[in-house]
């Protein structure tokens, strides 16, 4: 299986108060058609790596290989919606920006809003919606560009536990049913539990400057049960790796 995306020896440092702080220290990784969860202690550079993959930042050295014309969807940590637009137009705007007419863009946006269960709310403004609903719009917008790669930056960290849990299972359903164009998901998270519940493969990073501490495949069949012995065992292994 040829990789969808590969990172070759990516490094990155920031200047802060005149000092240079290295964040990423040579990350190499091949990602195929799979769901990757990226785990690591807070401030280790997970989000920076995700931003580099999205093209929001440039690595100091190394490179990111993505097939030409591959589209990328991004689920931001916060909904990041334009308050002056209805959610339908919020989802349609990226399509519009790429030269699609409003009619066609809205048609496509409607399709993905209904996929995330929001078809009845298309005329709502973001301020009229709950946090969980706004995060769904964020997801619908990412899917509507019909991306090959879906990036998610701690997408559940600002939701209440119940809402987070139902959104997790919805995303898993979309992924396992294969109703979207997404072939790879990379999710940054600091929850070991969430990573094992959702992903095919866990990539664990060391504290700053981040290197890859280990890659663990999750071979537990879905739907996964948090209380099962194999789940618990895997969780212990991941914690050991992070602590090391």
């Amino acid at each position: 299986m040829s990789p969808v995306l590969s990172l070759v020896n990516v490094t990155k440092s920031y200047k802060q108060d005149g000092r240079s702080i290295q964040v990423l220290n040579g990350i190499s990784l091949e990602i195929g058609e799979e769901f990757i969860a990226m785990l690591g202690p807070s401030g280790c550079g997970k989000t920076t790596l995700l931003r580099i993959i999205a093209g929001l930042e440039k690595p100091d050295s190394g490179r990111v290989d993505i097939p030409e014309n591959a589209k990328v969807g991004f689920v931001f940590q916060f909904p990041t919606l334009l308050p002056w637009m209805t959610i339908l137009d919020n989802v349609a705007l990226p399509l519009k920006a790429q030269g699609m007419g409003w009619g066609e863009a809205r048609e496509r946006a409607r399709k993905y809003l209904s996929l995330t269960g929001l078809q009845a709310f298309e005329d709502f403004y973001p301020r009229e919606m709950s946090g969980g609903m706004k995060q769904r719009v964020n997801l619908a917008r990412a899917l509507a560009v019909e991306p090959m790669i879906l990036l998610m930056d701690e997408p559940f960290s600002n939701l209440d536990p119940l809402t987070a849990e139902s959104l997790r299972s919805e995303i898993l359903d979309l992924w396992t049913l294969g109703v979207t164009t997404v072939r790879s998901i990379i999710m940054v998270t600091h929850s070991v539990d969430e990573a094992i519940l959702m992903a095919d493969k866990l990539v664990i990073l060391t504290p700053r400057p981040a290197k890859i501490a280990g890659v663990i495949e999750v071979r537990i069949p879905r739907p996964r049960d948090r209380r099962s012995a194999e789940f618990q065992k895997l969780e212990d292994r991941v914690y050991e790796l992070i602590a090391a």
């Binding site: 931003r51 999205a54 093209g55 929001l56 990328v72 991004f74 931001f76 916060f78 990041t80 334009l82 002056w84 637009m85 705007l93 990226p94 519009k96 920006a97 790429q98 917008r141 560009v145």
Partner: peptide, 26 residues
């Protein structure tokens, strides 16, 4: 919110889109 500009970059919105749909309404 600077995240909105990140969003516009991720979805490859051009200057015109950012001007008319982000900056002017804001």
């Amino acid at each position: 919110d600077p995240m909105l500009f990140d969003m516009s970059k991720v979805y490859r919105m051009g200057r015109a889109t950012v001007f008319f749909y982000l900056c002017v309404p804001a």
